[in-house]
Design a protein around this nucleic acid. Structure first.
Length: 504
RNA sequence: UCCUCCUUAGCUCAGUUGGUUAGAGCAUCUGACUGUUAAUCAGAGGGUCGCAAGUUCAAGUCUUGCAGGGGGAGCCA
């Protein structure tokens, strides 16, 4: 097990990690400075999630983690330790007489410690097992005068300002574990259903994705770019020899994959340079875009519904401790709402039917309802939360308010788009059957003034072996919003990017 | 980008019709306590009232501008 000594003293060698221009930040730290022995770095540790389930009382265990609270008296100290493996803490019991006073003094909220001891049945209330400590090593101190996180709860707004430390809170531990579980479940679902994961490019030269403003990618000198005679920037001298942007959607590339592998999906970062300041938008977010050859819009809806229900069930099966915490702390109805989605049949109706319901409702709207104009958030919310009381899939929108690639209906006025609307968050999925007919697609492209030279490769799929196909886009963070019950999308991604904010 | 609200101690917030030395709870520090559960009890320290200008004998408080944040809307996922 090696040496367990912890030397307390003035720092002589600042660890490499902090030996930067910020070193002065640590000068006030000297009273907490320790030189850390390497003895425990590579020894096996027990994860707290495993120990809390164990009933092997009397066995020797080792835990490493971050101190949440310390309490006690002059004889005995109780340390709540968390290693992120589970939302629950393990209680470490240390008899004061057995330890160097200076070491216990360094066990403060936020510090990182390693504990070797015996797993025992707890004598106290509130937990089944605890660790009777034999040895404690301070791996990293945390000056309590300056460590921002306290035992008490913090506002989510404050935690956004310290996003580098918020993973250490119960809330963000829960959110991040659920986020991971959902990412894994998405890959598992598609893999188990015969889909192949396609990596769509992040840098794109196509301006035709039509999903919003884009960030430019360039290596040109921003103060003195090469210019054309007419004063425009000469992008032929740029890195890629043309103007390039960050992708706003992987859909067009996913369609190329579906025209060969039949069932594909993308799952990657997506960038929108919109000046959107809302709790439901990010400038950088992750999107899942399945694309299926030989699927029509009904197959598309069936997949979307089954997929979402699978993810809700996966969260209930594998993240129940975190969900119970979030239900208790933030949203009393969270678990019931997830079960409600699983047990409900999504209501499917056309845009036209929805408009009729809204007009017949007698409600007064801030924005009037009229066939041909897009539904507002208040309209969608009424349908989902008041009229039907369950998720709703709207289809067959007026073609003039939807994208060029959507399959046109024989009526000549609507397209086979579909939006899945969820309670609380609105549109969670947007998708459609795609227009596979070359002539019809060309007509739309010309009507919408999309340069043919930018999408020739996309048109080739309709020219060579075209096939009926469909797909949709799921905003990953919107899914996590719904599954965690969080209210602001900036709280379900580790480091949110939004207008005026790219910190960390 | 539009509407609206907010910015006072490390955190969460009070702060009266403008008035003299700006408060509380928690956190922190010191002490007490033989098993605590966001421990408890006692005491102490801690403030450029977001920034800038203006009105006034006097501004945390009123006015204007700027910055940042929350909620709602639009854009969308």
């Amino acid at each position: 097990m090696g040496t367990w000594r912890t030397k307390v003293g003035i720092i002589e060698k600042v660890p490499a990690l902090v030996k930067t221009k910020d070193s002065e930040m640590f000068s006030h730290f000297s009273k907490f400075a320790v030189s850390i022995t390497k003895s425990m770095e590579h020894t096996r540790r027990n994860r707290i999630v495993d120990l809390l389930k164990s009933r092997e009382f009397g066995s020797e265990v080792m835990v490493k983690g971050w101190v949440r609270t310390k309490r006690g008296n002059k004889n005995i100290t109780f340390i709540s330790l968390n290693d992120g493996s589970v939302i629950h803490h393990i209680q470490v019991v240390a008899e004061v007489a057995r330890f160097d006073e200076e070491v216990l003094k360094l066990v403060t909220t936020g510090s990182c410690i390693a504990v070797r001891g015996t797993l025992v049945e707890s004598m106290g209330q509130g937990q089944h097992v605890e660790i009777q400590a034999k040895e404690i090593e301070i791996l990293g101190t945390a000056d309590p005068e300056t460590y921002p996180l306290q035992k008490k709860g913090h506002s989510l707004e404050f935690l956004r300002d310290i996003a580098h430390l918020r993973p250490r809170t119960n809330t963000f531990g829960a959110v991040l574990r659920i986020r991971h579980a959902m990412a894994y479940a998405i890959h598992k679902y598609f893999n188990d259903h015969g889909f192949f994961y396609i990596h769509a490019p992040i840098i794109t030269g196509s301006d035709a994705e039509g999903a919003g403003a884009m960030f430019r990618v360039t290596t040109l000198d921003d103060r003195n770019p090469p210019l054309l005679p007419d004063g425009q920037v000469d992008y032929s001298q740029d890195f890629f020899g043309k103007e390039t942007k960050l992708t706003v959607s992987g859909q067009l590339e996913a369609e190329l994959g579906a025209m060969a592998l039949s069932l594909v999906y993308t799952f990657g970062p997506t960038f929108r340079a919109e000046n959107s300041n809302t709790p439901r938008h990010l400038a950088e977010f992750w999107m899942i875009e399945p694309e299926m050859a030989f699927y029509d819009i009904t197959d598309n809806m069936d997949l979307a519904e089954d997929f979402l229900k699978y993810l809700m069930q996966y969260a209930l099966d594998y993240c129940i401790d975190d969900l119970e915490f979030l239900t208790k702390m933030y949203d009393n109805e969270l678990i019931d709402r997830l079960k409600g989605v699983i047990n409900s049949k999504f209501e499917r109706l056309s845009y036209t039917q929805a408009v009729e319901i809204l007009i017949a409702s007698g409600q007064t709207w801030e924005f009037p309802v009229a066939w041909g104009s897009d539904l507002q958030a208040e309209h969608e919310r009424y349908l989902v939360e008041k009229h039907f009381g369950r998720p709703v899939i709207l289809t067959d929108y007026p073609r003039d308010i939807k994208a060029f690639y959507m399959k046109q209906n024989p009526d000549g006025t609507t397209v086979r788009g579909m939006d899945v609307l969820f309670p609380r968050i609105g549109e969670i999925i947007g998708g459609s059957q795609r227009e596979e007919n070359l002539e019809a697609l060309m007509n739309r492209i010309h009507e919408m003034n999309i340069p043919e030279k930018d999408v020739w490769w996309y048109l080739d799929t309709r020219k060579f072996g075209t096939a009926p196909h469909a797909g949709f886009g799921l905003g990953f963070e919107r899914l996590i919003l719904f599954v965690t019950g969080m209210a602001n999308i900036r709280d379900v991604i580790p480091f949110p990017r939004s207008p005026k904010n790219a910190a960390f």
